[in-house]
């Protein structure tokens, strides 16, 4: 549904998006993850036909974003980072305007349906200036889906609203999955993990990692991590003991115990417990540590810079 090949955008000498390639299938929620200034917004703006790429191509539903811009724009729903509203319009008027502009025939039934879906029915005749930030965010979602687009592009839809509303927005986005392809940007890693089928991690305009949140975690984990807590030994003794177990790559103090890194695909838990016992200490705790996307992300970004 989305097909991006070698997409590049330069502003003067600054390269905002650097040779980006990826695909998104129908019904998939793809998260673009990266720190501020990584090129997420620029990428989305090129996909929505807002700005032309410097080089490379992007296709949406088979239409080139530059050459068939109007076709692309009719098939994309977009919510920019700053929710664009007309404060003097009513909720209904606003959604109707965007529906008509995007060529929805007989918009009224559709508009009511969409307003219902983002739970603004009881506010449908209010002026937008009187809506809370979270409601405006949902209103923004409403205009993005009103023409039933094949692709929905959301730029940081959960930024700046309270946690309850974040959950509601996430819930709404998850519902889109059945009928639309969703491209979703965020810099909150746990969010990407919760919502997305697939995550692209972008840093300085390049994809540094890609995959389902779970596989990503597996792939990128540079070996397994174990947390070990030993009783009856002081720190130096314990460290010395752990470092001499075969298969241990590094030992790091963490709290009262240690995190040890081992080679991937080798389970050394048996060896660890045995060594500790043999040395006459007590093994109080031994558990694998799962890296969160956060750790992976920092790890990758740290390695690249």
């Amino acid at each position: 549904m989305i097909e991006v090949r070698n997409l590049t955008k330069r502003f003067g000498s600054h390269t905002a998006v650097d040779d980006l390639s990826f695909d998104a299938q129908p019904g998939e929620i793809v998260g673009i993850l990266g720190p501020n200034g990584a090129g997420k917004t620029t990428t989305m703006r090129m996909l929505t036909g807002f700005m032309p790429p410097t080089s490379g191509t992007a296709k949406i539903a088979g239409f080139d974003v530059f050459n068939d811009s109007l076709e692309v724009r009719a098939r994309v729903g977009y919510l920019p980072e700053q929710v664009p509203v007309y404060p003097d319009m009513t909720v209904r008027g606003y959604v109707t305007f965007w529906a008509e502009l995007r060529g929805v025939r007989k918009p009224h039934a559709r508009v009511d349906e969409v307003i219902e879906r983002v739970q603004l029915t009881d506010r449908r005749n209010s002026l937008i200036r009187n809506l809370s930030k979270g409601m405006r965010q949902r209103l923004g979602l409403a205009q993005a889906i009103v023409h039933d687009p094949q692709v929905i592009i959301l730029d940081e839809p959960t930024i700046g609203i309270d946690p309850q509303q974040v959950i509601e927005v996430r819930e709404t986005v998850r519902q889109f999955r059945t009928k639309h392809t969703v491209l979703f940007s965020t810099h909150i890693l746990s969010e990407a993990e919760q919502i997305c089928d697939r995550v692209l991690i972008i840093h300085q305009g390049r994809i540094v990692a890609e995959g389902a949140p779970a596989t990503l975690r597996q792939q990128l984990q540079p070996g397994a991590h174990l947390y070990v807590l030993i009783g009856g030994a002081d720190e130096a003794q314990a460290r010395n003991l752990l470092e001499h177990i075969p298969g241990v790559q590094s030992v790091q103090a963490q709290g009262e115990g240690f995190t040890i890194r081992t080679q991937p695909d080798v389970d050394i838990r048996a060896e660890v417990s045995e060594s500790v016992m043999r040395a006459g200490f007590a093994l109080l705790e031994l558990r694998p540590v799962a890296m969160t996307l956060e750790d992976i992300f920092l790890d990758i970004v740290g390695r690249k810079t």
Partner: peptide, 14 residues
């Protein structure tokens, strides 16, 4: 100022 221009420019109108 409101950012609606960005949305207008991504709507299927010239």
């Amino acid at each position: 100022r409101e950012g609606t221009l960005e949305l207008l420019l991504t709507a299927p109108v010239t």
